[in-house]
């Protein structure tokens, strides 16, 4: 089948890209000024202790041996021990991953829920107040730095109105759901929702604005195509003309752009986490960089790179679903 073949091919390409990411991440340590051992060893360490530490960490082997070791270990999901926490880096990373995933997914849902209807309404009521409102919103939305938006939300909704908590993640979605299903208590979900609401709006606004803009412009362009007139001429109800035919074709460019913007989503998650003290990969990576925790830095970057590749394969598959003309040959 077309889709299976495409997925196989895309996965193979993805593995190549991930390999490139791993290599770059590995090399990052060698272009960084300062010897790694300086960050690991205590300040008053004797030369012998430094030597021992370097041997333990394999830092005195030739670079290609280190590289080979690194890849072999990675294949066993071993990213080394976090220098800071003394635990395997992979444990630390995967403990933080759900928080970031929850945030990214919540933001995506916020964005899709609001942007596509807004874009469609805006395009079908062109030059009416609702269109100007939507266009203005999307212009401001793509021009606002999300960390500042987050701070403003904290200021207004959290500090001044006192409606919602402004930082931390008390409970994960998984445990909250367990509480609901096994004990019938909604408090978990409620607390989870209250905490994730502001961060997901913060992260989602840029995308809401971007997709609104794309949907509106795409719908307007698509509505001018001849087939729309033909579809009307054969007596199809207007709702079907707009949603089955026009919106479906508008999705094609939207998906392309979304695929290219996935890096923005991940980068935005990093900074949103920092604003809301959200214990995800983003805050982890900033801490790791500040303390030169190499295994953690490399591991997080690789996980993010893999996540990006996976998202892109999904986006491409969606693209293919909406656009039968694509063969990816």
């Amino acid at each position: 089948m077309r889709l299976t073949r495409f997925l196989l091919r895309r996965t193979a390409q993805g593995i190549l890209v991930v390999w490139g990411v791993i290599t770059l991440v590995f090399l990052l340590r060698f272009i960084t000024p300062g010897s790694t051992i300086d960050f690991v060893a205590p300040l008053d360490a004797s030369p012998e202790l430094r030597q021992r530490l370097a041997e333990d960490l394999g830092l005195n082997k030739p670079i290609y041996v280190q590289y080979a070791d690194y890849i072999v270990n990675l294949l066993q999901l071993d990213m080394g021990n976090s220098l800071l926490k003394g635990r395997p880096a992979s444990d630390v990373i995967f403990a933080r991953l759900p928080a970031t995933l929850e945030l990214a997914i919540a933001a995506t849902i916020v964005a899709i829920l609001f942007s596509i209807p807004l874009g469609v309404i805006s395009a079908t009521r062109r030059h009416q107040p609702v269109d100007y409102g939507a266009t203005g919103f999307s212009l401001i939305g793509i021009s606002t730095p999300n960390f500042w938006l987050g701070i403003m939300l904290i200021l207004i909704v959290g500090v001044n109105l006192g409606w919602l908590p402004t930082s931390r993640r008390i409970i994960g979605f998984g445990p909250a759901l367990e509480l609901l299903v096994f004990e019938g208590r909604t408090i978990g979900i409620q607390v989870w929702f209250e905490h994730i609401l502001l961060p997901s709006i913060t992260l989602g606004t840029y995308f809401t604005a971007l997709i609104t803009r794309l949907t509106r412009n795409g719908m307007l362009e698509e509505l001018g195509q001849s087939y729309v007139e033909v579809t009307r001429a054969k007596g199809l109800p207007e709702t079907l003309v707009k949603y089955k035919h026009v919106l479906r074709n508008t999705m094609i460019p939207i998906i392309t752009v979304l695929g290219l913007q996935m890096g923005t989503l991940i980068g935005g998650a990093v900074i949103t986490e920092s604003v809301f003290n959200w214990p995800g990969l983003g805050t982890l990576i900033i801490d790791a960089i500040n303390s030169r925790d190499w295994p953690l830095i490399q591991g997080s970057l690789i996980v993010i790179g893999v996540g990006f590749v996976v998202i892109n394969i999904v986006v491409d598959a969606l693209y293919m679903y909406f656009n039968p003309q694509v063969t990816f040959e």
Binding site: V17, V18, G20, V21, L24, L28, I31, T32, P33, L260, M262, G263, T264, L265, I266, G267, G268, V270, I271, I285, I286, I289, N290, R292, I297, L301, I304, G305, F308, V309, N312
Partner: peptide, 18 residues
């Protein structure tokens, strides 16, 4: 490969390290 790194993350990593 460059695109696979989210810009902000890559920038943080490079600036933090350099």
């Amino acid at each position: 490969v460059m695109l696979a790194f989210p810009a902000l993350v890559l920038a943080i990593a490079l600036i933090g390290l350099l």
